[in-house]
Structures are given as structure tokens and as C-alpha cells.
Amino acid sequence: MILIFGVPIQALTGQLMVGLINGAFYALLSLGVAIIFGMLRIANFVHGAQYMLGAFVAWFLLNLPNIFPGLGLPTIGYWVALVLAPLVVFGVGILIEFLFIRRVYDLDHAYSLLLTIGLTMVLEGAFRLKYGSSGQPYEIPELLKGGRNLGFMFLPYYRVWVVVVSLVVCFATWFMIERTKFGAYLRAATEDPILVRAFGINVPLMLMLTYGFGVGLAGFTGVMAAPIYQVSPGMGQNLIIIVFAVVVIGGMGSILGAIISGFFLGIIEGLTKVFWPEASNTVIFVIMAIILLVRPNGLIGRVAK
């Protein structure tokens, strides 16, 4: 058996893979939180619940015949859910923005956090009423089942898929914000929404769509996560706190910072599991505390505020 720093290589690569997967989810979720914070100045605590919602929509779609028996509804699988569920969550996000979020834009940022904590409680509580705290299984799609033995580790296809898709989505989102016209409107609106509006751009509509997009991203992440983690009402609960820490580490509102620190912290967390398992749950928070001491604006802090 090959040992690296006294650890079997299988354990090391296995945890690295787990870390990379977690990192992919952290990056996708932090990306949404960073966009919403950067563009709308809203601390979207309900992001974790929206991620859970995405996973549940995928699960509902798969189980339509059981949920509505007798209607002859078909079961809708992973690939359609991957498109449909984020759209549903996008719609829910638009509604939440319209009903609640836009009422706190002009208030201190703290109120956005309090408001979204409340929304989190409502969403999670509602799902707990029906599903308790137990998890619902969601199978890996046929096409991505199995994996390949690389000798030093077993590489499941689905996990490779998650990492690749996460990278692609992160890059596409970054590109949209930093390199396209719509992104330019968004960046400008972050700096001076009143002026951008006076140029003829419907800023309130744009903010609504941006919130919907960030939330839709959470829904998408939820579908991606459904086959790996169980679909349960509490699945976003601890995750959102980690994601907030990741966003703080990356520099609040920094898109690139959120993506990089998402992957980076996932891997660090995986490595910690190998070398010091007891600290693996807290390592991200400890890193956050250290980063705040040495680089108060985060790793890639664009806005110091």
C-alpha cells in the first residue's frame, strides 16, 4: 500500500475527490449568493432553502405518478429536471423578489438578512411538515452510473460530471457578468442604479431577473446534488452557513472570489478530513477568521464596504 504523509493514497485521493465535489457545490452556491449580494446588496440567507427546493422539485418530477396517483402522469427524470427545476425555482425567486425582497432594498442591509432568515424558516418548516427530517433517495441517472477504477482510486462518473458542469456553469456565469452587455448593465447598476435607470434601463426589472437567476442557480445546484446527498428539508441548512463563510472569504460580492474560494475550501475541507478529521467541520470557519484578520476584504475584495 502506498502511503503519503502516513496516509494511504486511496484515502487521500478519495477525500480529495469528495472535497472537489463539495467544492463544486460550494462554488455554485457561493456564486449565486455573491451575485445577489454584489448586485442587489441582499444577504440571501434563504439560498440554502432554495437549493433544497430545487432538489425537491427534481424529486417531485421523478415521483409524479406516486404523488398524483390516477392522473396517469409520467415520471420525469434527471435530465429534464435539470432544466425544469431551476426554471421553477427561478419563478419562485421572481415571486419572492416581487413580494418581499424589493421592499427592503432601501433599508439597511441587515434587514435583508432578517427577512431571508424568516423566509428560510417558512420554506424549511413547510417541507418539514410534509417530509419530517428524513431524506428521500434520488437515483443517479442511468447514463452516469458506475465509474472507472484508476488503480489508485475509483472514479464515479457522476462526480466527474458534477465537477465539470460546475466549472462550466461558473465560467459561463462569470463570462456573462464580466464580458457581456447585460453584465455591464448589472455592474453599472451596482455602482449607481439611479443613473443607470436614467439612461433608459429598467433597473427594477433587471434586479428582479438577477435575483431570479441567482436563485435559479441554487435550484440547479439542488438538482445536481439530489443523487449525491439525500433530498431532505434540512439539506440546505448547514450548507448556507458554509456558503456565507465562503463568500466572506472570497470577498463579498466578488464573483471570481466566490468561485475560486468555493473549490479551494472544498478541497481544504477534504484534506482536513484525512489529516485531522475532528476539525473538518470547522476548518472553513477558522480560515474565514484568519482571512478576516490578515485580509479584511477577502481574498479578492473588489468592494471595501
Binding site: L114, I117, G118, L119, M121, V122, G125
Partner: peptide, 8 residues
């Protein structure tokens, strides 16, 4: 939990 959220 739901009630607390609504009150929030």
C-alpha cells in the same frame, strides 16, 4: 418554524 418565519 413556519409561524416564526412568518412573524419574522
Amino acid at each position: 418554524l413556519v409561524f416564526q418565519g412568518v412573524i419574522f
